[in-house]
Simulated assay, not measured.
Amino acid sequence: MSSLIHTLSLTELKLYLVFTYTLVWYFLYNAFGFVAQNKAQQLKIITAFFYCLVPTTLSILLFRGTLNGEVNLSSAHIHFLLVIVSFYSFSTIEEFRIKSNYNWALIIHHIAFGLVILKFAISADIPSTWLWIVAVQFSSIFVSLRSILKSYPKLYKRFNTVLEEADFWTFLLVRMLFQTFMMLSAIYDMYLVDEYRYVLIAAFFLSMLLNIIWFNQIVAKKIKRNKKIFDKGLTISVL
């Protein structure tokens, strides 16, 4: 193993790590088979596990770095990026493998944003503050947990409203406002210096578009839920 690593270039080593981390995700995915009813449920659980662990931990790391005035990428940052790319690869493969109706928005997001993240990891010439663009994905924790709880009607009924409300506010504040601001700032910076700027800018705008689509779905569900609550309250008042 050590002799192989010494013969690889830095870029090849990072690609090798992406492959290795993808295998780790598959190991964890199969391990969750002990608590899941089927492959689809396993994918939901491993997805929630990813959002609870990886972007959240990266956010904590970035927050500590911000307090210390650090702006350069560290080896830990690089590994987090590679872990995220490997999860996107794993998730996209499984989306095609186990489902008949594909979530194309999610697949496009994983491919486009995954390429951006991989470029960041390979070049390693960006300020660490740009990683907030990736770290804010911890906001997907709530929608992932709601997806899992759908298989447990009693728990879903008990916690769905709270998770839905948390999903709305975190997506609005973190994805629609903060992530959009960070991506626009990155676009301005890379437009001046980055040779791949047009590809990266296109990927960022695609991510913004998908955020708008997803947020529209969240708002529609929130309006529908509030309408049900209002109609139920009105019925009780009339009775």
Rank of each mutant, 00 (worst) to 15 (best):
I212P: 00
L13T: 01
V162H: 11
S123H: 09
F178H: 08
F230H: 13
D194V: 00
I108K: 12
S237I: 12
A105M: 14
F63G: 14
L28V: 05
D194K: 10
L209F: 05
F168K: 12
T22P: 00
F32E: 08
V18M: 08
T66V: 06
L209H: 05
L61C: 11
N211C: 06
I133W: 06
Y152N: 14
I218G: 02
L210D: 03
G233D: 09
I212T: 09
I133F: 07
S9Y: 03
I93E: 03
I117V: 08
A105H: 14
S123W: 06
V136A: 12
L4K: 14
A76L: 13
K119G: 04
T129R: 13
F87Y: 04
G114T: 04
T11H: 11
Q37A: 15
D125C: 09
I141P: 00
I111Q: 10
Q42V: 01
L234T: 08
I201V: 04
F168H: 07
L53W: 04
A186Y: 02
P127R: 13
F159R: 11
I236E: 14
L61S: 15
L155P: 00
L149C: 02
S207L: 14
V35C: 12
A40L: 13
L62N: 04
F27M: 14
V83C: 05
V199W: 09
V71M: 12
I107N: 05
F171H: 03
G33V: 03
T47I: 03
A203N: 05
S74I: 02
I223E: 08
Y21R: 10
E165W: 04
S91L: 10
R197K: 15
T92D: 02
T7P: 00
A166V: 00
L131N: 06
L28P: 01
V35K: 12
K227Q: 10
D231G: 10
T56L: 15
G114A: 13
L177W: 06
L81H: 06
S2C: 07
W132Y: 11
K227T: 02
A202Y: 04
Y102W: 12
T47G: 03
A202P: 00
K224C: 09
V199Q: 12
I46L: 04
N101W: 06
V193Q: 13
L149P: 00
M190T: 01
K39W: 01
F19H: 06
I46S: 03
I141D: 01
W104C: 08
L172E: 01
N72R: 14
F230N: 14
L184Q: 09
L200F: 05
S140K: 07
T56K: 08
L17R: 13
S75N: 14
L13F: 03
F34K: 15
L145Y: 03
P55N: 14
A36S: 04
A31C: 14
I122S: 11
K99M: 08
W130T: 09
C52P: 00
M208P: 01
I78D: 04
S74L: 11
I148T: 01
I93L: 13
A76T: 04
